[in-house]
């Protein structure tokens, strides 16, 4: 099976007034197509930075990042943006919907950006799929947190992305709502055969993925298969 995401000796450091701050060091990681991987770690461990690098939202200080067969390190922001539009979907902790657009328009946006004339129908179908058929014309501030996240999930799948990055998708939701949203996310992920990279500090949520990568102070300390889930890629391995 070919790797959908591959990090090779990835490092990220930023300059601060107290000198260089190392956020990630020598990360090497390979994620196959349709695999679901949880990246866990405490706050400040570098999970979100790693997600940013993998999704091409940021560029690495060193190393190579291969996404869908293309080396992000050699691409400029314009090319990375186009690649994101084609291959990547996102679900964020703070939903990141455009507040001035309705639920339907938010979901239509990535479809339209691909010049798909069927955007309205496709978006409506997706919103129906996430149970929001009665909320199409509502603005984000007229929706509950759970509903907003469901719109965000519909939008993520609307672009027919091959890879879905989710950053603490339940972080702003209560436990019950969060559970429902996660159920939805996983069921759509299975349905669309998407590769899922989920960043969380919630171990229980991480357990639902087939594989768990743990970051401590910018280094991978654990890369293991979660029992009873996933397709058995690799055995539990401590790095």
């Amino acid at each position: 099976m070919t790797a959908m995401i591959e990090a090779r000796h990835l490092a990220k450091q930023v300059a601060t007034s107290e000198g260089q701050l190392v956020i990630l060091k020598d990360i090497s990681l390979s994620i196959d197509a349709a695999e679901a991987v949880a990246i866990v770690g405490v706050s400040g461990s570098g999970k979100s930075t790693l997600l940013g690098l993998m999704a091409g939202l940021d560029s690495a200080s060193a190393g190579d990042m291969i996404l869908d067969g293309q080396n992000l390190s050699t691409m400029d922001e314009e090319e990375r943006a186009q690649l994101r539009g084609r291959s990547v979907g996102f679900v964020f902790q703070s939903f990141q919907l455009l507040p001035s657009l309705t639920a339907l328009e938010n979901v239509m946006l990535p479809i339209e950006l691909k010049n798909d004339r069927d955007a309205r129908r496709k978006a409506a179908t997706l919103l129906q799929r996430v149970g929001l058929e009665s909320r199409l014309q509502h603005y984000p501030n007229q929706l509950s947190g759970g509903e907003q996240q469901r719109v965000a999930i519909a939008r993520a799948f609307a672009s027919e992305a091959k890879i879905l990055f989710a950053d603490e998708p339940t972080g702003n939701l209560d436990a019950a709502t969060g559970a429902k949203v996660i159920d939805l996310l996983f069921s759509l992920n299975a349905e669309f055969g998407t590769t899922l990279v989920l960043v969380t500090h919630d171990d229980r949520l991480a357990q639902r993925c087939g594989r768990l990568v743990r970051l401590v102070a910018g280094e991978i300390t654990e890369d293991s298969v979660v029992d009873g889930v996933g397709d058995g890629v690799g055995d539990a391995a401590h790095v």
Partner: peptide, 16 residues
């Protein structure tokens, strides 16, 4: 700013 950032994650280039 947030709009622009979100549009970029959805694949919009700077020029777009």
């Amino acid at each position: 700013f947030d709009y622009a950032a979100i549009l970029k994650t959805l694949g919009c280039t700077s020029n777009q």
